[in-house]
Design a binder for these strands. Structure first.
Lengths: 302, 302
DNA sequence: CTGCGCCATCGCGTTTTCCGAACCCACGCT
DNA sequence: AGCGTGGGTTCGGAAAACGCGATGGCGCAG
């Protein structure tokens, strides 16, 4: 079976017209070169060179074949060259856990930024919630995740992205029963709860606790869009990010209850902070969210 | 060093997405395939496949490299395919000895015919004389030769081409001394001789011998064009082919002495009559000289 | 939890490859 | 004429590469 070294030898001999020089060029011995040519001629069934006392002279069929041998070698060279150029590219895959509305998280910009800079990085954006993402991150099912709220967890490095201002959303159908924004009165209306682990839950809890009352619980929704739909449908009041509801056409509206903000953060496992893939991810994330400070983790050279 | 079998294995595995199937396709074992991929990845410094429990899945860099691998294989395939197509072509070289004027021998037509049918046959037309060509033929310095005259030599096969009508050429400067064409009178004029081996010499010798006289010898010319020039220069009379001299502008003219013709023949060594190269040569020669009979030597299949 | 399909690894035998030495041949020099 | 030089080829043994069967680990389905 013909191999590349046959072709390499063929063009070397054709160019040097001398086995010894060709063997020096190829860092091997002269009998080896002779054997290559012999084997090549045998497998092709063709005589490539005339053996003269002055050296090797291409026959006309050798002359005819030489450019094709060069082409084949060039194609093979192009293959390895391209491979080498890909060698130090960021490669592999990242799975990013989302915790809320994809547009708010600017995942489109993140995706395009990653694709442009690192075309060989497979990116997966997986929907979820803050409290689904955290264990998934620790279990290695996610490489990074958006989370809402603050946590003191030495396993994770958190990157603050922005504050999420919250509001109380109410269905317009309940407007008749909401005469003012007295907290105790609101507590007697039905509420759509979030998971008790959710930062929003803590905000809600703090609101009522400060006023010495407990809200009425209807049901639980751990996805923001589910929550919004339930409020719109008139099931009850809920806490959502400011700006996601409202307007004349919407069947829900924001109540002017002052609420604290919750920080949106980006979490990665601390032990993976030096990872090249994570580094690339963070770099693009910083651009997308216009964060000034580069995270103080040096990339290790590959 | 990367070799073609690495690439062959690469595309086979990429297409089968399964080492075992790829190994069957390539008529080898699964561990061998595994090693090929491993070695290729190592020399390139990139990961080509994701190893999954369901098989081998191309990474995105593998995906990127695959078409280039295909191109390289295609180029190598083109090389061997072209070589194989050249496999049964007539190849090598023929050295043909000329014995007289190239135009008369139709060497241009012979050359173009050979070049058109057998582009990889190196043709050499070597000037000479009949009596230089014959020993060169036997010594293997020529593969074929034009000769004038007949010979009984069992080593050679001769192919009759045509008759060469001969004439006596005389310089116009001697016209005053040539009152008639009486042979005995002509014998007393100076003559340019040919080599004693030459057929022309025999013709001349026979001419005078029949008339019981000897021509006067000036010098010897064994090339026809030299002979003609000497005659034109007024050195003496000579025997040349009819039609090569004459006309108002020429300083030589033909004497009306009746002379026998000499056959022009094409000689090859009998032991080489079955040679493919000689066969190809004879075939074209027959066309050029419009010989009807194919020479009764069957070509042996290669 | 057992069986199946997949890939990676490990020795071992065999084939290929390579090398140095010796050889043949043509040419040029003495 | 003899001989040295430079070219390619051939030869035998050592070394490397290669391929194979067996084995192992792993995920998944029944």
């Amino acid at each position: 079976m013909m191999e590349l070294y046959h072709l390499r030898t063929f063009v070397a001999v054709a160019e040097e017209r001398n086995l010894t020089r060709a063997s020096e060029r190829l860092f091997t011995s002269q009998p080896a070169i002779s054997a290559h040519i012999k084997a090549l001629e045998e497998t092709l069934g063709v005589t490539l060179f005339d053996r003269t006392p002055k050296g090797m002279r291409l026959t006309s069929v050798g002359e005819d074949l030489l450019p094709r041998a060069r082409r084949a070698l060039a194609a093979a060279g192009d293959f390895v060259q391209h491979a080498r150029s890909l060698r130090h590219e960021i490669t592999g895959s990242v799975r990013i856990g989302l915790n809320t509305d994809a547009r708010f998280l600017r995942v489109a910009a993140l995706q395009t930024g990653l694709a442009a800079r690192h075309p060989h990085l497979d990116v997966a954006m997986l929907g979820g919630t803050t409290w689904l993402n955290l264990p998934a991150l620790r279990a290695g099912k996610l490489d990074a995740a958006f989370i809402s709220g603050t946590f003191s967890d030495s396993d994770l490095t958190l990157h603050y992205l922005c504050d999420e201002p919250l509001v109380v959303a109410a269905p317009k159908a309940m407007r008749a029963r909401i005469t003012d924004v007295d907290i105790a009165r609101l507590a007697r209306l039905p509420w759509v709860f979030t998971s008790p682990d959710c930062a929003y839950f803590k905000v809600m809890h703090a609101l009522f606790h400060a006023n010495g009352c407990e809200p009425m619980r209807t049901l639980l929704a751990d996805q923001e869009d589910a929550m919004i739909e339930l409020v719109r449908a008139g099931v009850g009041l809920g806490i959502v990010r400011a700006g996601v509801i409202g307007g004349d056409a919407d069947s829900a509206y924001e109540l002017p209850v002052p609420l604290p903000s919750v920080p949106l953060q980006f979490a990665v496992l601390r032990e993976r902070a030096g990872d090249l893939v994570i580094g690339a991810l963070m770099e693009v994330l910083r651009e997308v969210w216009e964060l000034e400070m580069p995270v103080g983790v040096a990339c290790e050279a590959g």
